[in-house]
Amino acid sequence: MLVLTRRVGESIQICDHIEIKVISVQGDQIKLGINAPKDVDIHRKEIYLSIQESNNEAASVSTNILERLNKSLRQ
């Protein structure tokens, strides 16, 4: 993991298209601004993990349905 120190108003550049800027620091909260192309999905980590879990559940459900359908067609 790369750890960088930035002050309010300073930024971090990722590749050519993503900039993360420190907007403010208040106590234990940091506000970040992110400039990125519209096609780049940006989520808080807990939301990202929830989306991944939902996608995995949906994929396993559809696999089960396809297996049941396949068994029904064989009979």
Rank of each mutant, 00 (worst) to 15 (best):
Q75Y: 12
I30L: 07
S11P: 00
V8G: 03
E19S: 11
R74L: 15
D16F: 08
N55W: 06
R7E: 09
I34T: 08
S24V: 04
E53M: 04
I14Q: 05
H43P: 01
I12G: 01
A59L: 14
V25T: 15
I65W: 06
G9N: 03
T5E: 07
I23E: 09
L4M: 03
Q52T: 04
V25L: 07
S72H: 13
L66M: 14
L69T: 05
L49H: 15
N35M: 10
I14T: 05
V25A: 10
N35K: 14
V40E: 04
L73P: 07
S50A: 14
E46M: 01
L2K: 03
Q26C: 09
R6P: 03
P37G: 12
I30W: 03
K45Q: 09
I65H: 10
R6A: 02
D16V: 02
E67H: 03
G27E: 06
V25D: 10
G33T: 04
N55Y: 09
S24E: 07
L49F: 14
H43V: 00
R68K: 15
S60F: 08
V61G: 03
Q13L: 05
L69V: 11
K31H: 10
N70T: 12
A59N: 13
H43K: 02
K71T: 10
Q52N: 08
I65L: 13
L66Y: 11
S60K: 13
I18D: 06
E57M: 15
